[in-house]
Design a protein around this nucleic acid. Structure first.
Lengths: 134, 134
DNA sequence: TGTAAACCTTACAGTAGCTGGAAGGTCAAG
DNA sequence: CTTGACCTTCCAGCTACTGTAAGGTTTACA
């Protein structure tokens, strides 16, 4: 199949698939006589793997590691688990950070009248700085 | 004061301050005879404003808008409030997305033994694709 | 047979928000 | 007079793509 069908089946864009080939995340696709890239079921499966890994938050380097594990029949599931736990930890920290931001945004919004006047707790709050160094 | 002190007092790096000047987020700093940038309290206050706006999740364009509001004595607090509410909404969506990712990561990790063997629910889960198009 | 739409190719530029490094000028202490 | 800590500008690189240009191919249809 051509690249756009592989894209549809994998959930990646054709652009992204070419990009993944460029950066050697996947092996160069076979080519048909006209020079078009050709994908088989196995190739699509790897693309779907990558799409899913990205979806759950792995970056390209981590996705590459996971893909290598999936290709390696002598892998140790411990390695995959380590990657997942580490990502989960980072994600947890990120979530807590966003929740804290969210909390502060709502606190600011609550105290701002949001009318036609210039007085604004949001602006004051952002301007009010924790002075650090003198 | 010189740039590194302004950096310490604002919570931004010197690099970042120069960058903000470059992209005209802030006015070009005054220069002393030797060509060094000079910052006064008002300048530091704007830098702190920006640092804080970034901290709570605003991107540079939004931060620029907020800074303009803070500079404008004829502002309407409604505008600031709108920016905050919109950002809060986006943030909420992002948080829910990350929480869903986190949930899936933990579900995968739970089902993976994480030992020396190759059998791994994580790999299987990532490989198992929701086949979309035939 | 012509042509237009829908594919495909490569190559290069741009995005956000910085950070790092090179190459060099300035300043205060010892 | 040298060392180290500043400062300057400029350019490259980071992530993970996306957009665009300029072209070649294939297919459907009039």
């Amino acid at each position: 199949m051509n690249i756009s069908q592989a894209a549809r089946r994998s959930g990646l864009s054709a652009k992204t698939i070419r990009y993944y080939e460029d950066i050697k995340l996947i092996a160069p696709a076979a080519r048909s006589d006209n020079g078009y890239r050709q994908y088989d079921q196995a190739a699509v499966k790897e693309l779907r793997f990558l799409a899913h890994a990205r979806d759950v938050g792995f970056d390209l380097e981590e996705s590459r590691q996971l893909l290598e594990l999936s290709r390696n029949p002598a892998r140790q599931s411990r390695h995959a688990r380590d990657l997942v736990m580490e990502k989960s930890q980072k994600l947890q920290e990120r979530i807590e950070q966003l929740v804290a931001m969210q909390k502060e945004l709502l606190a600011m919004a609550t105290r701002c009248k949001g009318d036609e006047g210039p007085e604004c707790a949001i602006i004051e709050n952002l301007a009010a700085g924790q002075e650090s160094d003198k």
